[in-house]
Amino acid sequence: MIMKWLHKFSSPPYFYALSGKLIKWLSVLLVAFLAAGLYGGLVLAPADYQQGDSFRIIYVHVPAAWMSLFIYMVMAVSGTIALVWRIKLAEIVSVCSPPIGAGFTFLALVTGSIWGKPMWGTWWVWDARLTSELILLFLYLGLIGLYTAIEDKRTASRSVAILALVGVVNIPIIHYSVEWWNTLHQGPTVTKFDKPSIHIDMLIPLLNMAIAFKLYFAIALLMRSRNELLQREQNGRWVEEVLEGK
């Protein structure tokens, strides 16, 4: 039953039609969560006892950093599916993710740097957390470069999937870097088994922002995938039908 549905979903014309509708609904949700998150984070949430209002950059920095890891996992999983089952749509998802992931990683690094200057007293240090996150950015850039360097799209997708799977080892390193080594970056606040060490009034806008960022990723991924699909299937009959507006 599930397999049957998956099979149907992964057929290009069906995916194209469904994703077009999905994007509209997801965009409405994105606006709602983003508004709630930003208003909650910048206006409603109380100032921090130590960092005052400066801590509010957390509402961009932390969701962006989570996304940088989350997108990598999406890419690795779809890459595995693409390598094993040779499903076209999985290939497309895994090659459309790196540019979005690189964007979020860059955002996490930049906001972290801006946060670090007033609080730590430095823009950048080579501690394990910051360095491994920088390596993640280079991995994303490498994947983008690899994909554009190979002419045949299907060979390129497979190479991207293999390189993405090699780099997957970096993901637990980033997450646990603050626990395995002494770092300037502090330990996890929310993503741990204990109760989150952030006040509930500050946590709710943070989770809203995290959902908003995930929705943004879903929308951007669907848009990119639709584009890529049309390009790859440009000689297919269904593409002709779509373009003629039937």
């Binding site: 109380p46 921090d48 130590q50 801590f55 609080m119 730590w120 430095t122 952030i198 006040h199 500050m202």
Partner: peptide, 18 residues
């Protein structure tokens, strides 16, 4: 030669900290 502050992972309003 250089001193950097390390902040912890706790975030709370001043009233709660008080």
């Amino acid at each position: 030669q250089e001193v950097l502050a390390k902040h912890d992972e706790n975030y709370m309003p001043p009233e709660v900290a008080g």
